[in-house]
Amino acid sequence: METGDLSERLRSHDPAVGLRAVGALHRLAEQVEAAAVARARQQGWSWEQIGDALGVSRQSAHAKHGK
């Protein structure tokens, strides 16, 4: 899809389209994060490295994803 097409859609549609997409993006981000962190842990990444990659502290990465 072209970028122009995208902005056109967002402009022409009712705000529900954009708002719903943002909600879906939040969920998608959480799901992709969960998968990526699990894989990084399997491959031996430290919580510090994961935190740095996500732009959060080691503690928050561990608190959120640690078992």
Partner: peptide, 10 residues
Amino acid sequence: DRSALAAIGI
């Protein structure tokens, strides 16, 4: 969700 994301090209 899929269709909402498709609407913004994802």
